[in-house]
Nucleic acid binder design. Sequence first.
DNA 1: ATGTCTCGACGTTCGAGA
Length: 267
Amino acid sequence: MPVRLATWNINSVRLRIGLVAKLVDEHAPDVLCLQETKCADDCFPLSAVRKLGYEHVAIHGQKGYHGVATFSRFAFAATASERWADKDDARHLATTFAEGPLAGVTVHNFYVPAGGDEPDPAINPKFAHKLQFLDELTHWSGRIAETGGRIMVGDLNVAPHESDVWSHKQLLRVVSHTPVETEGMNRMLEAGRWIDLVRRHTPHPEKLFSWWSYRAADWQASDRGRRLDHVWASADVAARMTEVRTVREARGWERPSDHVPVVVTIG
DNA sequence: ATGTCTCGACGTTCGAGA
């Protein structure tokens, strides 16, 4: 039986639990990874998630900011959250499956820091924090590069290639597409021998985005998007990938998140 | 390109973060 896995920056899970239900209704992910849940664990809408059919739920939240959650139809053998870049932010959740087609596989659900507006670590501590986070991800990737059974998903807040942004030239000095970030992401991919499942399905130079700013008057008409949301895997898992779908229409749903879900099927 | 959306706070509006 194939397994469907989705990742989505929901931008407040309490506000958009109805959109989560819509995604589940239309795309039926067996595993759903959310970022920017924006609530402490004791106010997470757990009963609604259970009603959607997810018996196994791992949450790692904090009040008001960040927060990640992983829902599953398959039981977990273990859940863990590591500390990154000298902060206790809720930005990482690792879940290892005990059963089902992904038994033994670990899904790492990440929300990488956005990095603020100014792409200079000397004057912008948020950008410095993002670069430290990416650097730690590269070292961590190198330490696990020889192991199989790995999936890494989430809002990594970097659009690595020219075809991942609406205008490479106009975004070269915009946080999310600066050379120090895109080169850092490429180092991370190489260090961990990660395979970018989304780009294996939709190769460059075809444009592909997963985020459009709320500030655009008409996101669809201007289509000034960026591909910030990623699904990576170790080679053994990547070999089983059969389908990838970026749910672009979700950006047009009522009161949408500014990110759309990315759904992969693993046979 | 200063535009929109979310949260939390001695809230009836603002600042911070994205």
